[in-house]
Computed example of a mutant assay.
Amino acid sequence: MPKGTTLDGSHLKSLLAWNLPDVSVLEAAAPAGEAAPDTPEALVDEAAEQAVRERFCHFDPDSEVGRVLFPLALDREVRRRAAGVQREAAAEDDAATRAAVEVPPPLASPEALLRDEPKLVSPPEVYQRISEVLRDPTSTVEDAAASIRHDPSLAAKLLRLVNSSFYSRTMRAVGGRFPAKVDSLSRAVMVVGGRQLATLALGVSVLPLFQDIPPHWVNMRVFWEHSVGCAVAAQAIALARGQDDAETAFVAGLLHDIGRIVVFKQASHHMAAAMRRAAAERQPLYALERETLGFDHAELGGGLLRKWQFPAHLEKMVRYHHNLDEPLFLEGPAVIHLADCLATAMGWGGSGNRHVPPLHPAAWEELGLSAEDLAALVPGMEARLAETMHSFFPDRAGPP
């Protein structure tokens, strides 16, 4: 590659194809006594590195995972800044300045907060139909399709998702025959699987419930970008580990921060106070939530999914993704924990947390991946993030 070549994803894929997983990039040093010029490119690189180092303030960039994750995050930040893409305001950028003068007292309980929101008492009607299919071991392909087709918006989102390149690649990898276009829910069930498609529909059916949050509290475009980023990362991690419930991991990732949205709706001043403290003290937001609310968004989100009778393992993946000290529930939450760390590190949207959460050693050990395994998954995750955002929100541009 000649001097001056700007490396992009195609170059990196070529290097891997040539069995060159490690390369050295040599840079000419400035002559002795002469400072390097402050070129626009150098200024962009410096600003990007400062931003990423601040993001990693709780995550050791010299750790096994940090050594591969930090350069990937830095590369994305440099590309974004060099392209002149302005990062949309995340939740914390708005809400952190809107805390009440006095911090409100902690709330009574997660259950009390959920009782105060009529829309959250019962799940969407389409969810109830899907849930019946999931609970019935004798359900058929047509049963699964029928549970979804009565909601045209949901059906359209699922068909766009199944027609994505991710599923076509997956089918080719296992020797399956993927039709040129999946144009019906019955065919989608045949491609993905009835229970798997119903599980995906569970997560997607929840999206319309959380579109009316006041924009001065949270930028929902940025929030869902982070949620989708976590979802595609969780699915990729599950597949890399050979798990057969990758769709469940996707939905758990999609809904992992749903409790935070409930707090924005029901206790916005508590959340703003937690965000302001987290930003000022450079602390993980979930820890400040526990002090301000009396519980964190993961516990609240798990409570909501239990209230809606979501599958127990999916609920636990959400509930414990910041609480990994319970060994009985470690494997599923560990997938979401790592996916959340990765999505935050890469700057895929934001749900209120400015900093990458510390990676729990037990979670990393449980997953059994190497840092190189994880790094190899990131380009595919990033591509699928843009594609999935378009599937869910076709009228909006994908992330940079």
Rank of each mutant, 00 (worst) to 15 (best):
G4Q: 09
G9C: 08
L12E: 10
D22A: 08
D22L: 11
A30S: 14
A32T: 05
E34D: 01
A36Q: 12
E41L: 14
E46H: 15
Q50I: 00
D60F: 03
P61W: 04
D62N: 15
L74V: 05
V85Y: 14
A96W: 10
A99Q: 09
A100L: 11
A100G: 13
A100H: 08
V103F: 04
P105L: 04
P106F: 05
V121P: 00
E125D: 10
E125Q: 12
S131N: 13
L134I: 14
R135L: 12
P137S: 11
T138D: 09
S139R: 14
R160T: 01
Y167N: 09
G176C: 07
V182F: 03
L185D: 10
L185Y: 11
R187S: 09
V189F: 06
V191K: 02
L200I: 03
L207D: 00
P208W: 12
Q211H: 03
W217H: 12
E225Y: 08
C230A: 14
C230W: 01
A233D: 02
T248D: 07
L255T: 05
V262A: 07
A279I: 05
Q283R: 15
Y286N: 13
E291I: 07
A298H: 10
A298T: 11
V318A: 06
A334P: 04
C341K: 02
G349Q: 04
A362I: 02
W364E: 04
L374F: 07
H390G: 06
F393K: 09
R396P: 00
